[in-house]
Amino acid sequence: MRFMMMTTADPSAPQTPPDPEMFAQMGAFIEEMSRAGVLLATGGLEPGGTRIRSKGGKAEVVDGPFTEAKEVVVGFALIETGSREEAIELSKRFWSIVGDGAGVIQQVFGPGD
């Protein structure tokens, strides 16, 4: 089973620069997930991004700012595990490094799901 694990950020929260020690720990965590054979892809996403809306056959770029958006995705990891519980365990380890925050784990459907 594949899962997309994403961290979400609250734009109203004060932006603090991540400390270098956390970067090192995250690096180690990502390496551990690769070595455990579960990590397929990972990356960070720019806050906000470009938004597009399609209406009446026309796709248009929607200009911000998006005050209505409560959350902004800031990072993701695509993993492959035997169960959702394994994904949750990995996510718990992630949060034990990162500290406070929120995220979402969603199954990515594939063959046999």
Binding site: S34, R35, A36, G37, V38, E80, G82, P111, G112
Partner: peptide, 20 residues
């Protein structure tokens, strides 16, 4: 025709081995 669990497990072990 496909027992996907075994494929996934072999692949996971292979990726682990590549790291080791």
């Amino acid at each position: 025709l496909v027992r996907a669990d075994l494929c996934r497990e072999a692949l996971r072990l292979g990726r682990v081995l590549a790291g080791l």
